[in-house]
Design a binder for these strands. Structure first.
Length: 518
RNA sequence: GGCGGAGUAGCUCAGUCGGUAGAGCAGGGGAAUCAUAAUCCCUGUGUCGGGGGUUCGAGUCCCUCCUCCGCUACCA
């Protein structure tokens, strides 16, 4: 295998019954940017996404669709593969919990936990609504006119008791607290870490990890009347894809542990249950669990009744894929909630991309095309101003590395755009259009410095905007083989005299059809 | 109720070890003309949520109050 350091990153596996929405796209996008950055920066990356396909809801939805659960999953799981293609996600694997490799993996983990004495058989009981096929907590219930207890949906509930296997989560309180305290970066952002910590500090109850009320799931080894409940089944996908249970053969030791990217709604499962399972099984805990925020739409909570749902394929069709990728990564501090608005997106598309970055490329490339015979300029001696701009550009790699290491995508882009601004100022100060008449040699130097700066910028924007960056690099005649981050220095600078293709705009302006549309 | 976070320019937010408040966007004025009418320069008299305290000096520390948000277990 390669000697490159390994980097493993995962999205949650998405519940196959859902339609892909902005939340799915956002989580996966963040992972994609991370994965692309690390690949370009010399890591052996594994980027995993997939679908969670078991459970009562899927079983029921399949029945309603008149399909076998497996056939149903085959059909709807495809929606997430389509999303990945549509958004240019570079996942290396797509795991489905119904695959044999996963069934084998979860069952192996189960046995390991059982051998360790971490699992015991008891009863799960609670208020159950037959109509909803769901359990409800006491405080969720209301009362009907006849005094009967009702689910929030209005369905009558009854107290039911079913046998269930339990995981001894309660025993892991202190060891989890030690984990959080000894590894401050284990849960990010910090405010989420505080929440999880206080939740765990308050004491944990054992966790029900099997069901007998449905059968669409992984059978419990040695007790086929039970299927595994969501926690242990779904979370285990992360080690399945890394090669578990073959811990010593294959890539497991090299790949694992992973960085888990999750929405804040499922943080607890990843930051409490999952590390407890792993520690109990003697497996290393994840490298980090990062919980990102939610999007609102035009300042409001997204809801179907408000009609402000953001459909991934629609915004891509409207603004362009790389434009949307850029906006989502730039608009908010990663980890916080953010608002997705038409006005804001257009501002990003037109100001940041079309004006600042796209127009910089266009003004430089078209001057080169016109004044340097369609070839990369030949520089003379560099002065302090030239070096300052180039040093700023070369300095971006260490800066962006630091931001990427803590998933600060917005800061990475801010840093890059700092150099975009420097380059635009440099064009104005140097005024190469004037030099054309007074000092053509100096003009070539200036244009060379700018073209080299563009090369650096285009290399660095690859993780966020792969397609557009690639087109820009094509226009600079940077070969595919020269686009890794180890080329981000003067030793690999643009080759003077290289033939350049005819420049064309990469980031078009967004124009509203309707005047003054908000 | 408990725990955690936040309240700084019209908007979104930065503000390290306490030392006379900053950036981007929006708005106003100007320069330039290579470029996707894009770019560049200039322009901010803000009770730093209220009150009290420590200090020579507090957005930055302490107390208190107000407002908003998140978490407070079986919903991927």
């Amino acid at each position: 295998m390669s000697g490159k350091p390994a980097f493993y990153i995962t999205t949650p596996i998405y519940y196959v019954n859902d339609n892909p929405h902005i939340g799915h796209a956002y989580t996966t996008l963040a992972c994609d940017v991370m994965a692309r950055f690390m690949r370009l920066d010399g890591h052996d990356v594994m980027f995993l996404t997939g679908t969670d396909e078991h459970g009562q809801k899927v079983e029921k939805a399949a029945r309603e669709a008149g399909l076998d659960p497996r056939a149903f999953c085959d059909k709807v799981s495809k929606n997430f593969r389509i999303l990945a293609k549509e958004w240019n996600f570079s996942n290396d694997d797509f795991i489905r919990t119904t695959e044999p490799r996963h069934v084998r993996s979860v069952q192996a983990l189960w046995r390991r936990l059982e051998e360790a004495g971490e699992i015991y058989l008891d009863h799960y009981e609670g208020w159950y609504a037959v109509r909803d096929e769901a359990f409800y907590a006491e405080d969720e219930l209301g009362e009907g006119p006849d005094g009967r207890k009702l689910a929030p949906s209005g369905a009558p509930v009854e107290w039911v008791k079913e046998p269930s296997y339990f995981f001894r989560l309660s025993a892991w309180r202190d060891r989890l607290l030690d984990l959080y305290d000894s590894r401050p970066g284990f849960i990010m952002p910090e405010t989420r870490r505080n929440e999880v910590r206080s939740f765990v500090a308050g004491g944990l109850r054992d966790l029900s990890i099997s069901r007998t009320s449905f059968s669409w799931g992984v059978p419990v080894p040695g007790d086929p009347g039970h299927v595994m409940y969501v926690w242990i089944d779904a979370l285990t996908n992360y080690i399945t894809a890394a090669g578990y249970p073959d811990e010593d053969g294959g890539d497991f030791r090299r790949r694992w542990p992973a960085l888990h990217m999750v929405g804040k709604d499922i943080l607890r499962f990843h930051a409490v249950y999952w590390p407890a399972f792993l520690m109990a099984a003697g497996i290393e805990v994840p490298r980090r669990v990062f919980a990102h925020g939610w999007w609102t739409s035009e300042g409001r909570k997204i809801s179907k009744s408000l009609g402000n749902v953001i459909v991934p394929s629609e915004i891509v069709a409207r603004y362009g894929l790389d434009q949307v990728r850029y906006t989502l990564m730039r608009e908010v501090n990663f980890g916080n909630d953010g608002d997705f608005s038409h006005r804001g997106t257009v501002r990003r598309c037109n100001h940041d991309l079309a004006n600042d970055y796209g127009n910089l490329a266009q003004r430089v490339l078209s001057m080169i095309a016109r004044n340097c015979g369609g070839r990369a300029p030949r520089p003379g001696d560099l002065n302090d101003g030239d070096r300052e701009l180039l040093d700023g550009a070369y300095g971006l790699l260490p800066a962006t590395r630091e931001h990427i290491a803590v998933q600060a995508f917005h800061l990475m882009l801010q840093a890059i755009w700092g150099v975009v601004g420097d380059a635009n100022r440099y064009v104005d100060e140097q005024a190469p259009w004037a030099l054309r008449k007074t000092d053509p040699a100096r003009m070539e130097t200036v244009l060379y410095v700018l073209a080299e700066t563009l090369r650096v910028l285009a290399l660095l924007t690859q993780p966020v905007m792969p397609e557009s960056s690639s087109r820009l690099l094509d226009q600079l005649a940077v070969p595919e083989s020269e686009r890794q981050f180890d080329r981000l220095n003067a030793d690999h600078a643009l080759r003077p005299g290289a033939d350049l293709p005819e420049p064309t705009g990469v980031f078009p302006r967004y124009r509203d059809e309707e005047q003054g549309a908000a």
